[in-house]
Write a protein that binds this DNA or RNA. Structure first.
Ligand code: MN
Ligand code: MN
Ligand code: MN
Ligand code: MN
Lengths: 220, 220
DNA sequence: CAAAAATTTTAGCCCAATCTAAAAATTAGT
DNA sequence: ACTAATTTTTAGATTGGGCTAAAATTTTTG
């Protein structure tokens, strides 16, 4: 199956919508993710359906078929491996890797991706803490929770971020927060659900509810 | 100037024809290199001319403008740097790197290519011995000659190959010939211009005129 | 130098991926 | 349960990059 970069992007978006929203992807939602007119999405859905990559019925939204899901997973694998390459080998910072990986992910060569995987030492997570599927499409699971769910007194370590916006990642950079940073929850403020957090045992700051919901941590 | 991958490929081909044939590129020659119908080439030449990337007059063949030449040189830089990455970091052999680099070369990010260059330690030559232009577009020159021009008794070292065909490179692999291999010219056979060559001081073989014209060497 | 051969361009078509505007179907509100 | 609002699809157009067949131009050759 040879897919164009555009077709691959649609599959990825449908995959992510199903993952995030836990339901079939609607035309409008896909259009917003991709940044095209809904009419263009309808066109593409027909093409993907004719290639058996999605289950499509007019007006009903779509889900990935088994083969569509495999293509999406492999695309995510390539994307995240390239992000690791850019971050660890070329020393790009985590807010810069995504855009370049968006292009690199479409290079088609199993040999390339598998050698890259080996070169990077079979990483299990990307620079944002997202899991990297292996060659068989299997994701590594791990225990993690949002910082907001930690209790006062808990010590936790940052494993990932749910939001990849450059401005958000730069905000974390400004606070010297990166994957591996340790937090101690000092207090939870009920009125606005913000938290007082001790970062790396040496500085205390206030993090908003929104931020605490984005940060994924595990207890230590 | 944002160029499509297709436009970039045309510029590269026009550049290579000018370099090899030492003259302006004709429609038919370009068509053969790219693998399209001559009518499609004419179409593209009009588009490239309207972007001031080539000098084009109907029926007269084309040359690159200064800006077209810069784009072509930067594309060659990206191609060759990726070839070095694939060969030295991912351990691809020299016959496998070209096809993958054909895709990677179109990833547009100056930051990416310059960091890649640094990561590879600013290589001056690619896995086939071709020079890599630096960020300013400057190629490294070096003294080299075709093996066919070496004289009996000469000791030389292999610096590059003029032909990148997989089957040819595999032929060299079979003879255990790679960049850096040393040759001693034992004899030149006038009747067919073949040469008797001692490879790496330990085995003698006959190389045809054609092969000797492809191998680029320098005296040691 | 004129006719034949080769090259190049034009004309008219196709496909993927996009758009806008209008029509159809679904969903929500009273 | 209608009607109104929203979502989705259809219709028709556009653009980049291709194609073939035919016309125009240049080059070669007798
Ligand atoms: Mn990403
Ligand atoms: Mn990521
Ligand atoms: Mn190459
Ligand atoms: Mn090369």
């Amino acid at each position: 199956m040879h897919l164009s970069a555009t077709e691959e992007n649609y599959l990825k978006v449908i995959y992510k919508i199903a993952e995030r929203e836990k339901k079939s992807a609607s035309t409008n939602t896909i259009a917003k993710y991709i940044g095209t007119a809904p009419a263009s999405v309808t066109d593409m859905l027909k093409r993907l359906a004719s290639k058996q990559l999605i289950n499509y019925q007019k007006y009903r939204g779509v889900t990935l078929t088994t083969s569509g899901g495999k293509e999406a997973t492999q695309l995510i694998r390539r994307h995240r491996l390239w992000e690791v390459f850019l971050a660890t080998k070329l020393r790009f910072s985590w807010e810069a890797v995504h855009d370049i990986a968006e292009e690199l992910e479409h290079i088609k060569s199993d040999e390339l991706v598998n050698r890259l995987d080996a070169f990077l030492d079979y990483p299990k997570f990307d620079p944002h803490g997202d899991p990297i599927p292996n060659a068989q499409g299997k994701f590594t699971l791990r225990n993690q929770m949002a910082l907001i769910d930690a209790l006062p007194g808990n010590k936790v370590v940052l494993l990932g971020v749910r939001e990849h916006e450059t401005s958000f990642l730069e905000y974390l950079n400004g606070l010297n927060i990166s994957l591996g940073t340790e937090f101690t929850v000092k207090a939870f403020n009920h009125f606005d659900k913000s938290m007082n957090i001790l970062i790396d045992h040496n500085r205390e700051t206030l993090l908003s509810e929104k931020v605490c919901q984005i940060l994924l941590v595990k207890k230590i």
